[in-house]
Amino acid sequence: SFQYVPVQLQGGAPWGFTLKGGLEHCEPLTVSKIEDGGKAALSQKMRTGDELVNINGTPLYGSRQEALILIKGSFRILKLIVRRRN
Rank of each mutant, 00 (worst) to 15 (best):
Cys26Asp: 14
Gly21Tyr: 01
Arg64Ala: 11
His25Glu: 15
Asp50Val: 01
Glu35Ala: 12
Lys33Trp: 11
Glu35Met: 11
Arg64His: 13
Lys72Phe: 06
Leu70Asn: 06
Lys20Ala: 13
Gly22Asp: 01
Leu60Ile: 14
Arg85Lys: 13
Ser1Tyr: 15
Lys72Met: 09
Lys72Asp: 12
Phe2Thr: 09
Thr30Gln: 09
Gln8Ala: 07
Ala67Thr: 02
Arg83Asp: 03
Gly16Met: 05
Tyr61Lys: 15
Val31His: 08
Lys39Arg: 09
Thr30Asp: 01
Gly12Ala: 02
Ser43Ile: 00
Pro59Leu: 06
Ala40Asp: 01
Ile81His: 04
Leu42Asp: 13
His25Ser: 14
Gly57Ile: 00
Gly37Trp: 07
Lys20Leu: 08
Pro59Met: 08
Val82Trp: 06
Phe75Ser: 15
Gln44Ser: 12
Thr58Ile: 09
Ser32Gln: 11
Ala40Ser: 06
Gly37Glu: 08
Ile71Phe: 05
Gln44Gly: 14
Thr48Tyr: 11
Asp50Ile: 02
Glu24Tyr: 06
Tyr4Glu: 06
Arg47Asp: 05
Phe17Thr: 04
Thr18Val: 09
Glu24Gly: 09
His25Trp: 11
Arg85His: 08
Ser63Ile: 07
Lys20Gln: 14
Lys45Pro: 03
Ser63Asn: 11
Asn86Lys: 15
Val82Phe: 10
Glu35Leu: 12
Arg76Ala: 10
Phe2Cys: 06
Pro6Gln: 15
Gly62Met: 00
Gly49Ser: 01
Ile81Gln: 06
Lys45Gln: 10
Tyr61Val: 15
Ser32Thr: 09
Gly38Pro: 01
Leu29Trp: 02
Leu19Lys: 01
Thr58Asn: 10
Gln65Lys: 12
Pro59Phe: 08
Ala40Leu: 04
Ile55Trp: 01
Gly11Lys: 00
Ile34Cys: 02
Lys79Ser: 12
Gln8Trp: 09
Ala67Gln: 02
Arg83Gln: 00
Val82Asn: 05
Glu51Phe: 00
Leu78Glu: 02
Leu70Ser: 06
Glu35Asp: 12
Ile69Pro: 08
Pro28Gly: 03
Leu78Asp: 06
Thr18Tyr: 10
Leu60Trp: 01
Arg64Glu: 08
Thr48Phe: 10
Leu29Pro: 03
Ala13Cys: 08
Thr48Ile: 12
Phe2His: 10
Leu9His: 10
Arg64Gln: 15
Glu24Trp: 00
Thr48His: 11
Ser32Arg: 07
Asn86His: 12
Asn86Phe: 12
Glu51Ser: 03
Pro6Cys: 14
Thr30Lys: 08
Leu52Gln: 02
Thr58Met: 13
Leu23Pro: 05
Thr48Arg: 10
Lys33Gly: 12
Gly49Thr: 03
Gly73Val: 04
Arg76His: 13
Gly49Cys: 03
Thr30Ile: 11
Ile81Val: 14
Ala67Ile: 03
Ile81Asn: 01
Gly57Trp: 00
Ser74Gly: 08
Arg64Phe: 11
Arg76Val: 07
Arg83Thr: 05
Gln8Ile: 15
Arg47Cys: 13
Ser1Glu: 15
Glu24Asp: 13
Leu78Ile: 08
Leu78Cys: 05
Arg84Cys: 01
Leu68Tyr: 12
Val31Lys: 05
Gly62Arg: 02
Ile55Asn: 06
Leu19Trp: 01
Ser43Glu: 07
Ala40Met: 01
Thr48Met: 11
Arg85Pro: 15
Val5Cys: 09
Ser32Asp: 15
Asp50Gly: 03
Ala41Arg: 07
Ile34Asn: 02
Ala41Pro: 04
Lys20Asn: 11
Lys72Cys: 07
Gly22Ile: 00
Ala41Glu: 11
Leu19Gly: 03
Ile34Phe: 02
Glu35Lys: 09
Lys45Ala: 11
Val7Arg: 05
Glu35Ile: 14
Lys39Met: 02
Glu66Gln: 14
Gln3Trp: 09
Gly21Met: 05
Lys72Gly: 12
Tyr61Met: 15
Thr18Met: 10
Val82Thr: 07
Gln8Asp: 11
Phe2Tyr: 15
Leu19Val: 10
Leu23Asn: 14
